[in-house]
């Protein structure tokens, strides 16, 4: 494992912790898209079905469990917690995420590495992860104002994607048989989706101003 991959995993982990912290500390999930969180839960459940059949490392297994458990906890809070549920911006979170699920499933059935149950689920999870942030970005754009922790959450999530690209570049040059174009192409698409957010994030950072997205 190289430093970029590890740093990417850590920023991914930090993003989830920031989100849990926001929900726990403020007892509010305003500004957070429940649809994006449910898509991530689906992404992890689909990708990590290999958790009992495939062993890569203790690190991988623990991270898989942490990602599944933390994302399910977030979804549970947003749906089931009496106080948190009330702060959910339901009227702003109207992205039709079922289309994303359907499109990812169709694409996975067409483009995959092997026509097996696990490989198709894996490809599906990769495609779905690439677009899962869309409901969140649309929600932020609609509400205009982005609170501090929500901004940090999306920032760390974007940083994770950027670091994974560096990881692939590193692996491409250091590993003789490195080939994973499905993950790389999807990863590039996913990272590109953050470009607009990052632009305004750095603008607000540079001007020391509150993060605001144009309508």
């Amino acid at each position: 494992m190289n430093i970029f991959r590890f740093a990417g995993d850590m920023t991914h982990l930090i993003s989830i912790l920031v989100l849990l912290l926001k929900i726990y500390a403020t007892k509010s999930c305003s500004g957070i898209s429940r649809k994006t969180q449910e898509l991530y839960a689906l992404v992890f459940l689909a990708r990590y079905v290999d958790i009992f059949t495939e062993f890569i490392s203790v690190y991988n297994t623990i991270m898989k469990i942490v990602f599944i458990a933390s994302t399910l906890a977030i979804v549970w809070c947003m749906r089931g917690h009496r106080v948190v549920r009330r702060s959910y911006d339901k009227e702003l979170d109207t992205f039709r995420h079922y289309f994303l699920i359907a499109a990812s499933l169709v694409l996975a059935l067409l483009v995959h590495e092997k026509f097996t149950f696990q490989e198709i689920l894996w490809a599906f999870s990769i495609y779905l992860e690439a677009v899962a942030i869309l409901p969140q970005l649309v929600l932020l754009q609609r509400s205009g104002n982005v609170d501090n922790l929500t901004g940090q959450y999306v920032f760390f999530l974007g940083a994770y994607r950027g670091l994974y690209i560096l990881n692939w570049i590193y692996r491409y040059f250091t590993e003789p048989h490195f080939s994973r174009w499905i993950a790389c192409v999807s990863g590039l698409v996913q990272t590109a989706l953050y470009a607009d957010f990052f632009y305004y994030y750095f603008l607000s950072w540079k001007n020391n101003a509150k993060l605001k997205l144009p309508a």
């Binding site: 991959r5 991914h12 495939e54 898989k64 590495e113 994974y164 048989h177």
Partner: peptide
Amino acid sequence: LKLINNHDEL
């Protein structure tokens, strides 16, 4: 060329 993809990334 042997394709290696054991899904070792998260």
